[in-house]
Simulated scan of single mutants.
Amino acid sequence: MNRAALFDVDGTLADTNHLHVTCWWEALRQGGHDVAMHDIHRAIGLPGEDLLAHLLGEDRDTDQDDALTSAHDTLYGTYFDRLPPLDAAADLLRELDRRGWRVVLVTSARQTELDALRRAVDADDAITATASADDVEEGKPAPDPVDHALDLADASARDSVFVGDTVWDMRAGSRAGVACVGLLCGGIPRGDLEGAGARAVYRHPADLLAHLDDSPFAEVTDPGR
């Protein structure tokens, strides 16, 4: 079996969470919904339909979902040529690849958005595969995206680590039986990440890179040795 280093992208490798907050806020405003940005921030990381259910309730007019999602996607798409990667994100992926890990991206982003994020992170040479929202029936916090990523890497849960920045990432990884690492750069407090299953929490990719040798990554033995 292989070792899999699974990574969320928005807020974990790219500094995009607050762009999503602004775009969802404007899309919701255009649709006649007054939703606080704080509440939107806590929902970032969920697939679009689940985010709307979380913010507007299960009893909302679901006929409006497509229009709201399209408005968000159109607004967010205006940033595709300048999405900011987080410092040392590419270096972290390359170092794990150098150490023999199979790096797989696990994201709620659709393919077009994922392509823009990959261009921003600029580490395709270190990425083995991607698991996007298009690949599974149920997104985070269900374990399905993580399970799919493990299949792509041909790795077991016990030989894998999932890095993310939201409680949805931590819950999805925990439900899949994977050791979870939280990053604070997405704006979610340490206590929330730990409460959702994070085994360790770091400030950002550069902080995790600097502490790889005493992180949960160091606890997984290389099956080739």
Rank of each mutant, 00 (worst) to 15 (best):
E138Q: 15
G139M: 04
G139R: 06
G139F: 11
G139W: 02
K140S: 08
K140M: 13
P141V: 09
P141K: 06
P141F: 14
A142T: 14
A142Y: 13
A142H: 15
A142W: 04
P143Y: 10
P143V: 07
P143K: 10
P143D: 09
D144R: 08
D144M: 06
D144S: 13
P145F: 09
P145A: 09
P145W: 11
P145N: 06
V146C: 05
V146E: 03
D147S: 12
D147L: 15
H148Q: 03
H148I: 00
A149M: 10
L150R: 12
L150Y: 11
L150C: 10
L150S: 09
L150N: 08
D151M: 04
D151P: 00
D151K: 11
D151Q: 14
D151Y: 00
D151R: 15
L152P: 00
L152Q: 10
L152R: 15
L152D: 01
L152C: 01
A153L: 07
A153Y: 12
A153V: 11
D154N: 14
D154G: 13
D154Q: 13
A155I: 02
A155N: 05
A155L: 04
A155S: 14
S156L: 05
S156H: 12
S156T: 14
S156Q: 12
A157T: 06
A157V: 10
A157F: 11
R158F: 01
R158G: 03
D159F: 00
D159C: 02
D159R: 14
D159I: 00
S160C: 05
S160T: 04
S160P: 06
V161W: 11
V161D: 07
V161Q: 11
F162M: 14
F162K: 01
F162P: 01
F162Q: 01
V163E: 06
V163A: 04
V163G: 03
V163L: 05
G164H: 08
D165E: 12
D165G: 03
D165M: 04
T166Y: 11
T166M: 07
T166A: 14
T166E: 06
V167D: 11
V167P: 02
V167L: 01
W168Q: 07
W168E: 01
W168Y: 14
W168M: 03
D169K: 07
D169S: 04
D169N: 05
D169R: 03
M170C: 09
M170S: 09
M170G: 04
M170P: 08
R171Q: 15
R171V: 10
R171P: 02
R171Y: 01
A172Y: 11
A172P: 02
A172G: 13
A172N: 01
G173R: 03
G173I: 04
G173L: 06
G173F: 05
G173N: 01
S174P: 00
S174Y: 00
R175C: 00
R175A: 15
R175L: 12
R175M: 04
A176Q: 07
A176V: 12
A176G: 08
G177Y: 11
G177A: 04
G177Q: 09
G177L: 09
G177M: 09
G177F: 10
V178E: 08
V178P: 08
A179R: 15
C180E: 10
C180A: 14
C180D: 03
C180P: 08
C180V: 12
V181T: 10
V181A: 02
